[in-house]
Simulated scan of single mutants.
Amino acid sequence: MAEVLIISGSPAAPSSTDALLEHAGAHLAATGHSGSLLRARELPGEALLAGDTAHPQLAAALDRVAGADAVVLGSPVYKATYTGLLKAFVDLLPMDAFAGKPVLPFLTGGSPAHVLALDYGLKPLAVTLGATHVADGRFVLSAAIDKHVDPDAGGPTLTDPKVADDIHAALAAFEAELDLRAPAARLARRHQEAAS
């Protein structure tokens, strides 16, 4: 199945965004996809701000993006858009970093007033990075997420059943896209491995 990279632009820990992304990752894993979480806040700050792509941790993070079949992109809303931390990371990516990769965007925030940041911030970012398929993402109120739940304990991360249903619908549509693209992605990966 698909190798999904889940990128969090949240600078906080614990984080509602991370809790939502961990929930999404568990859901994807339950349907046979493999997912790994890349937290931008865990990258070395000085190297990140300096754009030092030769730094081993940054180089490894960029390789993870390149090797992924698909991307789930998440951030809290800061100043009406995604975080500067996420911006610092994506600024290091090549312009075609998401080419051929379906992208599912998620934003979290404290007020419904920020819902448009999804369509005017995060989705255009994915397109700028070459995504040809940007799934219908979701803006989720932080109050609907329990950021203190251990995802391995199996507790409910999403405290509002309607929100949970909506998130699961978004994930199901994304998984359907992954299933359609999986054979082509595997074939492309085999060609890449054979060439190197």
Rank of each mutant, 00 (worst) to 15 (best):
T132H: 06
L118A: 11
G121E: 04
A12C: 12
R181K: 08
Y120L: 15
T108Q: 10
V140P: 09
E22F: 04
A99D: 13
K162G: 15
A117T: 05
P156G: 09
H133V: 14
A80R: 14
T83I: 04
G109P: 03
V163D: 11
S34Y: 10
T132F: 05
L171Q: 01
L28A: 12
Y82R: 04
A24E: 05
G9C: 02
A24Y: 09
V71Q: 06
P44K: 08
G121V: 14
H33C: 14
P44C: 13
L141H: 08
P56A: 12
V149E: 01
P112M: 11
V72N: 03
G35H: 08
A185C: 12
I7D: 02
S16Y: 07
H27D: 14
A50C: 06
G67H: 01
P76W: 04
R64I: 06
G45T: 13
L28G: 09
D119S: 14
P14A: 06
A169P: 02
L171F: 09
M1R: 07
I6N: 02
P105I: 04
G109D: 03
S16T: 14
D91W: 02
V90H: 00
R64L: 11
P183T: 09
D150C: 14
T159S: 13
L107W: 02
V140I: 15
A117P: 05
V140C: 14
A24K: 01
L178R: 03
T53E: 07
P105H: 00
K101H: 12
D160R: 07
G84P: 05
H168M: 12
P105L: 07
T157D: 08
